[in-house]
Each structure stands twice: as C-alpha cells, then as structure tokens.
Design a protein around this nucleic acid. Structure first.
Lengths: 205, 205, 205, 205
DNA sequence: CAATAACCGAGACGGTACGTCTCGTCTTACG
DNA sequence: CGTAAGACGAGACGTACCGTCTCGGTTATTG
C-alpha cells in the first residue's frame, strides 16, 4: 500500500498525475511571488525568481499563468478573501468608521495591501490588465464598499434616494488618494472625518 | 549660439560641439518619450526605442537621465506647466467648479494626463521614484489644489479655522480614485457635487 | 532473442497485460522514429515527437529504450536484416561487383541507409554509442564484407595468405568515404574500379 | 581602420567600439568551444557553456555565429591551417607515405582532429551544415590530398592519364573509414600498404 | 471467477538549454 | 567634449524537450 503517502500527504512530492495540477506547486508559486514582492519590490518579482524560489520549473508557471501580474493577482485574491469583512453592528456611523479603519489597515499595513498597490500600479500601465483587475477584484470590492450604506438605507436609517455610488467614492476616494498619490498617513482621525462628512451630507439631503 | 538649431533644427545634424549640451537632442528625447507613451503604452517606452525614434545615441540619454521614468517626468513637467492654471474669479464655488473641471480634463483627456497616470503607476512600484515624483510635481500640485480655498479663506469667504489639507483631499481624492482605481467616467455633475459637499461642510463648520 | 516478440501477438490493440510488452507499441515506435528521421531529419527525431506520432506514452518508450539513437538502431537493424544479402555465384569478381553495388544502393538510396548515416554521425559524438553500434551492427557487417573474399580464398581462387581485413578496408573504405565525407556520387564505374584494383593486388601478391 | 586592433589586440579589454568586433571575445569563444569539446565531448559544447567559460555574453556569440557547429568550424579552421602541410621531396612514394602518415596523426591524435570528427558527425545529421563544411574545408582538403599526385604527374613520374580523384579516394578513403566507422587503429603499416597498392596500380595503368 | 500484477496512454513535474530581447556600460571617430 | 554608432557583459524572457513520476484503465494469469 501507500500508507506512507497517505499518512503525510502534504509532505510528499507531487511529480505529476493524470487528473489535475499540483496543489503544492500552486501554493509555492503564489507564496514565492508574494514574498518576493514584499522583500524585493515589484522589480524583484520575475518569473525566474519565482520559479527558483518556489522550487518549481518555469514551464510549470507558464502552464498555469500568463504573466507575473496574473500570479500576483491570484496570490492577492487568495490572501484578501478573509481580510475584508464588512461589519454590521446596526449603526451606520460605527459600521462605517469600523469599515474604513480596517480597510485602511488592510491597504497600508498588510502584505496583501502592498500587492494591491503593485497591481494598481500595473493597471496604470496596461489597460488590459486594468480590466482584469476590475473584473476579478475591484468590482467586488466596490460592492463591498457600498454594503454598509445600502444596509442602512434598507433599514431606513438613511434616505432612500441617496446616490450611493457617488457617496462611496467620496468616502473611500480620499483614502486611495492618500495611498496612491500623496503617500500621506491615513489615521483614524482622517477616516472618522470622512464618515462625519458623509453623515452630515446624508442627514441633510 | 543656438540660432542654427532653432532656425532649422531638423536639417542640421548635431554631432557634438564644444559648448555644452545639445538642446536639439534634449527636445527630441522628451518628445519621443511622450509620443511613444501615447502611441505604444508604457511598455513601448524603452530607452532603445526613445533613442532610435529621437535619432539620438543611447549614451546621450544616459548622460542626462537615469531612467525612462526620469525622462517621462521631465517631458511631463514641460507639458504640464501651462495647463494647470488656477482660476480666480473671486467666488469660491465658481472657482472650485472651474478648477476641478479643468483638472479633470487635464487628467483624463490630455497626453500629459496619460503620462502622469503612467508615472503614478510607476510610483507604486518604486518608492524612490515616488519620492522624486512628489518632490518635483505632486507637492507643488498639492499647493495648487489648496490655492483656491486659501484665497477664499484670506478673503474671509471661508472660516479661518478650516482644515484645508483634509478638505482638499476630500475634493480631489474622489477624482483620482476614479482615475486610478475604478476607471469610472468623471463628469461635471460629479465634480460639481464634490464642490457642493465641500461648501456645505465649510458653511457649517 | 526476439523471435517470440515477432512471432506471437497479432495486430490487435494492447492496453496492458500482466506478462509481456505490447508488440503494437513496439512497432509504432520504430516506424515513427524511422519516418521522423526521413521526413524531418535527425533533429526532428525527439522522444516527444516519436511518442506523439506513434500514439504512445513517453513512459512506454523509456521502459524499453534509453535514448533516441537506441530506438533508431533497433529500427535500423529490423530494416537492414534482409537487405544485405551476400551473393555467391562462385566467381569472386562478379560477386564483389554485385555486393559493392548493392551495398552502395543500400547506403545511398534506402531509408535504412539514411538511418545508418545518422547513427554513424551520432557515433562521432558519443564514444559509448559508437561501441554499441559496433557491437550490434558494424562488426557483423564487417564480417559480411569479408565473406565474399573468404569464400574465394576457401575455394582457392585467391591466395591463402591474403590480408583480408586490410583488403576489405580498401574495398569498402572509399565507398564510406564518399558517403560520409565528400558526398560524391558512388556509381558502378567507381565500385567496379575498386574491385578491379583489388583483383590486381590479389593476383600479384 | 583596424590597425590599432591588429597592433595590440591581446592586451586591452575591449568592451565595444564603433567599427568592428572584439578580437578578445572572438578568441575566447573559439578557445572555449575547442576546450569544451575535448574535455566534455560534443554534448558538453553548449552555447551557454561556451559563453560562461569564455566570459562572454550569449548575445555576443549569436551576433557572430549562428550555431555551435559554426563556432567549432571556425575554431577548427583556425587550428587546422598550419597542421596540414603537403611534403615535397621529389619522390612520390616517400611524399605519399609522409603525407598519409601526418594526415593520420592529425586526424587521430590532435585536438583539431577530434573537432573534425565532431563536425563530420554533425554533417551526417544536417545536410545544410554538410554543404558548409565542404565549402569551407573539405573541398580545400581534397585539393591538398590531390597535390602530391598531381605534382608527380607533372614531373612525369606518373602517367598523365591517371584518374586522380578516384585514386585519391582509394588512398584516403580507407583512413577515414577506419576513423569514422570501424575505429580500428591506423598505423604506418596500413598507410604504407595503401601507398604500395597505389604505386602498383599507377605503375601498370 | 475475482484478485492481482504488469503494461498501457496521458500528462504534470523539476530541469537544462535554447534563441531573443532590453538593459546600462564602454569604446571609437567625428565635428 | 558632446555627439552618433554600435559592440559588449548581464540576465530575464518564453519555448522545446528532457527524463521521472503518478494516475486511472485494461487485460492475462493466478489463486
């Protein structure tokens, strides 16, 4: 039998099989890409470096991904999945403050945030990739950004005729602006102020 | 003297001289870089391509610039200088609407705007370049963004204790957000709404 | 021996059995290798190409052969077996003229001859393969080359003290020389002249 | 033009110039190819290995040569130039014995001979290269092979109607045959016997 | 007449070398 | 001394095969 293999399935080397790819290789590539970005910067992320530091053949990478940004996007999506929960305490102000604060933390402190910055940078150079990035992450994220407000509207805490997309842009726009353009620190004072301005607008409209 | 170069720059080949650098070469490089970016995209801007399409030797480029983004930044600064005038009609609302509208036009419609997007993209990949970009353009632009509001404060049209930097981020942040992240259209309706929200905040504070 | 293999299993598809290999796969591989050499040249003979055009798994090839030249050698030996009969009319001159003429035809006209050329080429690059080629074909062929003369010596038509190996090298050497080095045409006039020279030497010695 | 290079080619490092290639790089490549063939065999001669052991960039190799056999041919021609002098003592027999003996030594003992074997091997795999090899070496060598006999014919020592090409093939053919096919030792006894057979034929014809 | 064992096609794997591309440096010759 | 030209060392690119390995299926012999 293969009791050894079965006993420790993670440890054993996977050298190919008939139906499907190596999970081991897939993970090693994504982790290597992630690590390289954080340690060496975007220029340090080369297919050769990924292959070599993942202990994987280049051809194995090319079999499953087309570009290095494709790899980084996969790595990012895997990491980002759990980190962007939308809070629901039932109170708009608190939820928004909470959400913007954790969004900020994600963007500026986590490795995944660094990867996203790199991907957004690449999107500026490559319209085709920009479209992919939107389709595979940004649109979904945009929905998430809307969620707190939409729930409040649903609960009757906010006016029904609120122009949600425009309001969301005014809430998160300044955060991305500081992240991508000015590089200024984004603290809770700043995000709280954004929420306050929103509530003021929404209360009056 | 440069009269020859200026009089008939195309005809006379400039193969070196004893009196400093060639203005002809400088211009040809900046224009070539600009054109290549617009026509072929950022990936099409290589030092070799610039040299070849400017009719200039690679070494001449390396003598005066270090990287291709350095060239693009020079090209951008030259183009951007005149295009970002700050209006002063004496009325904050009108001035801001005017300013944001022309800023938007600059960012989304002009070739220089395309170059800036590329430079901002590169800044996400390269912290050193991000610092240079801030020092040579963004800080100055940030000052310009503040100008309309500061003038109004000075005139007594806006409260003196206004947190100008934070307000500016809320005004232009959403614009850059759409430019760099969502790719959504930025029309006058959107910029006018930003101004309205600002006036509402400022009037109350 | 291989008589079993050749004898038994018929033309039906063979997808595995407990004892013994698939004759179908064996033949398909040898034919594919042969065809590829003739159609695409030596560089076109790759294990992957053989496997794919024989409809066989790579592993099946590696189970039975070690290198592509090993395959070509098997293919060659199978083809060559019948084509190199040694004539025996009882007259040395006629036999030799006949033999050299058919040897030349085999070397320059047949597909098997093309394969042998490739194998001899490989033997120049790889001493280990050169040894194998000698053991599995050239020594035997050398014996065949000797046969006509030895029979004549036996019959008393040629002197008993003839240095047969040296004479054989002078008979066939020029043929291989033209085949492998100069590429000159080898016609009957040339082979007849070789025989004439031999008879002259043998008559005198 | 190149007088500088020719004057002092060895000493200075040459990292590029406007008109013409680096003699230093050229020599390093040819020597590296030669050494690799002798030390590691034909399979050990790879462009990467040559580049690395010559301290040269791959692109520099590809700029001037197309294939590894092209490099080996250049290396061979440079080495072979001086080693194949044709003797002229005024006596056919002595000259031929001398010539065949030194030819044999060149083919079987020298590094250049090993390279030639490899090139002849490659020629069996690649008709295009075979043509190049003939044009750049074999034809010339064939002329050299004829020279001793032609001089003797000219001196009246041999019949004027001698079929020189066919005679040459009978003289050198057996040597190449042993070199390329049988691998048998080629000693002076063998080459002297070839000469003796030739003289016998020529004397009678 | 099931269980087993050897062989089959398929194809993913870690690798090596390929030939191409661009980089940034260096040397030369000209004006 | 700045220029145009362009060869150079370096190294990443994406591709082609290499030889190894696993997988699931097929069949003949065995228990």
């Amino acid at each position: 039998m293969r009791s050894d293999d079965v006993a420790d399935p993670a440890a054993r080397r996977h050298h190919g099989n008939r139906h499907g790819r190596s999970e081991h290789a897939r993970r090693a590539v994504l982790e290597a890409a992630d690590d390289l970005l954080v340690e060496k910067g975007f220029a340090g992320v080369t297919i050769e470096a990924i292959a070599s530091s993942a202990g994987v053949a280049k051809q194995t990478i090319y079999r499953w991904w087309s570009t290095k940004t494709d790899i980084l996007l996969d790595a990012f999506l895997q990491d980002a999945a759990e980190d962007l929960a939308v809070p629901d305490h039932g109170e708009v102000g608190a939820d928004l403050r909470d959400y913007l604060s954790s969004l900020t933390h994600f963007l500026t402190r986590s490795d995944a945030g660094a990867v996203l910055r790199a991907l957004l940078g690449q999107a500026q150079h490559d319209p085709a990739f920009a479209a992919v990035l939107r389709a595979r992450f940004l649109d979904e994220q945009h929905d998430r950004d809307r969620l707190v407000i939409e729930r409040a509207v649903h609960r009757g805490q906010l006016p029904a005729d609120l122009d949600v997309p425009a309001e969301v842009d005014q809430l998160v726009g300044p955060i991305y602006y500081r992240l991508l353009v000015t590089g200024d620190r984004i603290d809770e004072h700043f995000t709280d102020r954004l929420v306050a301005a929103f509530l003021q607008r929404a209360g009056r409209s």
